[in-house]
C-alpha cells in the first residue's frame, strides 16, 4: 500500500482489494449470526451481509471491466500522514497511564510536525509550542470544569 504510482495503472488494485475485504467481512458476519440466540437479532445483519457481498462482487466486476484511473492515494508525503495518525493512536494508548494532557501533547506535537511544510526555526518552534499549550489548556479547562467531563 505504500507505493503510490501503480494505482493509476491497468487495474484499480485498491478497489479490488477493498471490495474483497468487504466480501470477507460479509462472510464473517454470516458466520457470526449463527451464534445468536434470538432470531430477531439475526434477520437484519444477515440481510445486510448478503447485500454487502453482492454489491462488493459487482464492484469487483465493474472495476475489473472499467478501472477508474482517478483512484489512488495521489501525491503527498506519506511520513506526514502516518505521523499524524500514529501519534493520535499513541496518545490513546498512553492516556490511561500518562493522563489526558501529557498524552494529547504527543498527538499535538505529531500534528504540528506533520502539518509544518515551511521548515522550523527556534522561534517558530517556540511560538507553536506556546500556542499549542494555550489551546490545549483552554479546552481542557472548558471540558473539565464547566462541562464536567471526567478527563483522565
Amino acid at each position: 500500500m505504500t507505493e503510490r504510482a501503480p494505482a493509476a495503472a491497468r487495474k484499480d488494485v485498491g478497489t479490488l482489494i477493498i471490495a474483497s475485504l468487504f466480501i470477507v467481512l460479509g462472510l464473517l458476519t454470516l458466520q457470526d449470526v449463527t451464534t445468536y440466540s434470538d432470531t430477531d437479532s439475526v434477520v437484519f445483519p444477515r440481510f445486510v451481509a448478503y447485500a454487502l457481498i453482492v454489491c462488493s462482487a459487482l464492484v469487483i466486476l465493474a472495476s475489473w471491466l472499467r478501472p477508474n484511473p482517478a483512484n489512488g492515494f495521489g501525491s503527498g508525503d506519506w511520513w506526514r500522514r502516518v505521523l499524524l495518525v500514529a501519534t493520535m493512536l499513541v496518545c490513546c494508548f498512553v492516556m490511561p497511564a500518562a493522563g489526558f494532557l501529557p498524552a494529547t501533547a504527543i498527538a499535538f506535537a505529531g500534528g504540528l510536525i506533520a502539518a509544518r511544510h515551511e521548515g522550523w526555526s527556534v522561534k517558530t518552534a517556540l511560538v507553536f509550542a506556546v500556542s499549542g499549550v494555550v489551546i490545549m489548556a483552554a479546552f481542557y479547562a472548558l471540558f473539565r470544569y464547566p462541562l464536567g467531563v471526567p478527563l483522565p
Binding site: L84, M88, T104, A107, F108, A109, G110, G111, L112, A114, A115, F128, S131, G132, I135, M136, F139
Partner: peptide, 8 residues
C-alpha cells in the same frame, strides 16, 4: 497549528 488543534 490548525491541524493539531483540530486533531486535539
Amino acid at each position: 497549528i490548525l491541524v493539531p488543534a483540530v486533531g486535539f
